[in-house]
Simulated scan of single mutants.
Amino acid sequence: MKKVYFISGTMCTIDLWKLVFSRLKYTNFVHIDITSATSFSDINKLIINAIDAPAIIVGFSLGGFSAMNFAVAYPEMVKELVVIAANSDALDQNEIQLRKSTIDFLEQHKYKGVSKHRIQQFLHPDNYQNENIISVIKKMDSDLGKKVLIRQLKATSSRVDISEHVSKLKVPVLFVSAENDALVSAESIKTTSKTLSKGRYVCIKNCGHMIPLEKFNELSDIINQFI
């Protein structure tokens, strides 16, 4: 069986992947928890300590960027990448300012948990009332809490553009986007995939940002076929 390593996104735990894990074939899956990291350098160290190289790494959102960033820094330690709902761009100034404002607010106020409006930003409209998905998002947020949210926002706000470095990767990289992702442009992910000599691209329709929860059947099939 192949060992495959999974990295979650911001305020996501192993719960993000449970439905995907249940459908993976011939796979020994390992979740890498990056919530303790205070920088991308820390994230790289956590990955190094977790994997048997060369490794197959699957990353979602922040986890996808982290997987690419790790592959750029340690190409000899990566066999294949699956990057889900993530691109190699830097954060734009609006996002950076929003994060600063959010951190300032959180440090001065009680955290009441992820809001309904924020959850809907993650989802396709068809899933706005999907309690199975919503309950997982709320549980992950509650399990991690305010301190982790602040730490993750601070740790990842210095995200720089690694697109040029990613384009030089020689390992197979599968990029998976969602047609209706309001946070990460599917078209931008497609463009990035074309810059790699071994880049592949798949777009999942009728899906928002939370691909592992919204379209776990399709995502599992895609991962099974790639690895």
Rank of each mutant, 00 (worst) to 15 (best):
residue 2 K to M: 10
residue 3 K to L: 07
residue 5 Y to M: 09
residue 8 S to Y: 06
residue 9 G to Y: 15
residue 10 T to Q: 07
residue 12 C to I: 03
residue 14 I to E: 13
residue 14 I to A: 14
residue 16 L to Y: 03
residue 16 L to Q: 06
residue 16 L to S: 04
residue 17 W to E: 02
residue 18 K to H: 07
residue 26 Y to I: 00
residue 26 Y to M: 11
residue 27 T to W: 12
residue 36 S to D: 11
residue 39 S to V: 06
residue 39 S to F: 09
residue 41 S to R: 12
residue 42 D to N: 14
residue 47 I to D: 12
residue 47 I to K: 12
residue 47 I to E: 12
residue 48 I to D: 08
residue 49 N to L: 13
residue 51 I to V: 11
residue 51 I to W: 11
residue 52 D to W: 05
residue 52 D to E: 15
residue 53 A to V: 02
residue 53 A to S: 13
residue 54 P to Q: 05
residue 57 I to Y: 10
residue 59 G to R: 05
residue 60 F to R: 01
residue 61 S to D: 03
residue 61 S to P: 03
residue 62 L to I: 01
residue 62 L to F: 00
residue 66 S to M: 05
residue 69 N to D: 14
residue 74 Y to H: 15
residue 74 Y to W: 05
residue 76 E to C: 03
residue 76 E to P: 01
residue 76 E to S: 14
residue 82 V to K: 01
residue 82 V to Y: 01
residue 85 A to P: 00
residue 85 A to D: 06
residue 89 D to K: 13
residue 90 A to N: 06
residue 90 A to M: 06
residue 91 L to H: 02
residue 96 I to T: 09
residue 97 Q to R: 12
residue 97 Q to D: 10
residue 97 Q to W: 03
residue 99 R to V: 01
residue 99 R to T: 01
residue 100 K to C: 08
residue 104 D to Y: 09
residue 104 D to M: 09
residue 105 F to T: 01
residue 107 E to A: 02
residue 108 Q to V: 01
residue 110 K to N: 08
residue 110 K to W: 01
residue 111 Y to L: 02
residue 114 V to C: 07
residue 114 V to R: 12
residue 114 V to N: 05
residue 115 S to Q: 08
residue 116 K to P: 00
residue 120 Q to I: 08
residue 121 Q to N: 14
residue 122 F to I: 03
residue 127 N to S: 07
residue 132 N to V: 05
residue 133 I to G: 04
residue 133 I to P: 04
residue 136 V to S: 09
residue 137 I to T: 03
residue 138 K to Y: 04
residue 139 K to Q: 15
residue 141 D to K: 10
residue 143 D to C: 12
residue 144 L to A: 05
residue 145 G to H: 11
residue 147 K to S: 09
residue 148 V to H: 12
residue 151 R to W: 04
residue 151 R to E: 08
residue 152 Q to F: 08
residue 152 Q to T: 00
residue 154 K to C: 04
residue 157 S to T: 09
residue 158 S to Y: 10
residue 159 R to M: 02
residue 160 V to T: 13
residue 161 D to F: 14
residue 163 S to L: 08
residue 165 H to G: 10
residue 166 V to T: 15
residue 171 V to H: 12
residue 175 F to S: 07
residue 175 F to I: 04
residue 176 V to D: 04
residue 177 S to N: 04
residue 177 S to Y: 10
residue 178 A to Y: 05
residue 183 L to V: 11
residue 186 A to V: 02
residue 187 E to N: 14
residue 188 S to E: 14
residue 189 I to R: 11
residue 190 K to Q: 10
residue 191 T to S: 13
residue 191 T to Q: 15
residue 198 K to A: 13
residue 198 K to C: 11
residue 198 K to R: 11
residue 199 G to L: 07
residue 203 C to R: 06
residue 205 K to R: 12
residue 205 K to E: 13
residue 206 N to E: 13
residue 207 C to I: 04
residue 208 G to Q: 07
residue 212 P to N: 10
residue 212 P to Y: 09
residue 213 L to G: 02
residue 213 L to H: 04
residue 213 L to A: 01
residue 214 E to V: 03
residue 214 E to T: 03
residue 215 K to D: 02
residue 217 N to Q: 08
residue 217 N to D: 14
residue 223 I to Y: 11
residue 225 Q to T: 06
residue 227 I to H: 13
